[in-house]
């Protein structure tokens, strides 16, 4: 290979990579605002779905499970606090599982929703199944615990999906509830939590 060849190859490679980069940048510029907007829109719809009877869902503050930004909200009905919604992340098998948890005002779970994840297709994604998510209804933080046997008292792991099930149950939901409990008992010490005047006395 002569020096001339080396220069030719380098120029060839650089030009093609620049073209490729420009095309990708163009597509990204066109699509990313749309993606952001649709993500936000879906977030609002998801919150609405978590508490369909709410008259207002107000943001209470931010928290950072696994150094990721998540938010928590208070659900109001007839001027009183009816419950809470908290977003959380659980460290799964191959991704962080993004979860929404809705509770009543005593932190008993109303329902949970899996917003996004990148677990193994066809196996880990069974955490999205209603039969798994519905187990959380009516559980208080003490009973959000994963067991591998048949149970109605605790949360039953999905066969073959123990890691993802545990991520949702213990790393995600239970930690969120414990955090929320701590915040509600002593809101002043929380990280960036904003105290809503007298709404949960």
């Amino acid at each position: 290979m002569t020096p001339k060849d080396i220069i030719k190859i380098t120029i060839n490679l650089v030009i093609i990579y620049i073209i490729g980069g420009l095309i990708l940048a163009g597509v990204y510029a066109k699509t990313s605002p749309v993606i952001y907007q649709k993500n936000e829109q879906e977030k609002q719809e998801a919150l609405k779905k978590m508490a369909p009877e709410a008259e207002a869902i107000d943001k209470l503050g931010d928290w950072y499970p696994h150094e990721k930004h998540a938010e928590y909200y208070v659900v109001k009905k007839g001027g009183d606090t009816a419950g809470y919604i908290i977003q959380t992340f659980g460290k799964g098998y191959s991704s962080y599982i993004n979860i929404l948890v809705a509770t009543d005002k005593d932190l008993k779970i109303e329902k949970i929703e899996i917003l996004s994840h990148a677990e193994t297709p066809g196996l880990g994604d069974e955490i999205e199944k209603p039969s798994f998510k519905e187990q959380f209804k009516g559980k208080d933080p003490e009973h959000v615990r994963l067991v591998k046997t048949e149970t109605t008292e605790y949360i039953q792991a999905i066969t073959g999906v123990t890691i993802s099930s545990r991520a949702v149950t213990e790393d995600g939901v239970r930690r969120a509830l414990e955090f929320l409990k701590g915040q509600l008992l002593s809101p002043q010490t929380g990280n960036r939590a904003r105290h809503e005047g007298g709404s949960h006395e």
Partner: peptide, 28 residues
């Protein structure tokens, strides 16, 4: 336009380019 000696990195660029385009377009 592809120099035979660097065809593999260029094929990879083309593949990942199309995959990214498909991914972003579908997401939006």
């Amino acid at each position: 336009f592809i120099h035979p000696r660097i065809r593999l990195p260029i094929f990879m660029l083309i593949i990942s380019g199309w995959v990214s385009v498909a991914d972003m377009t579908m997401a939006a």
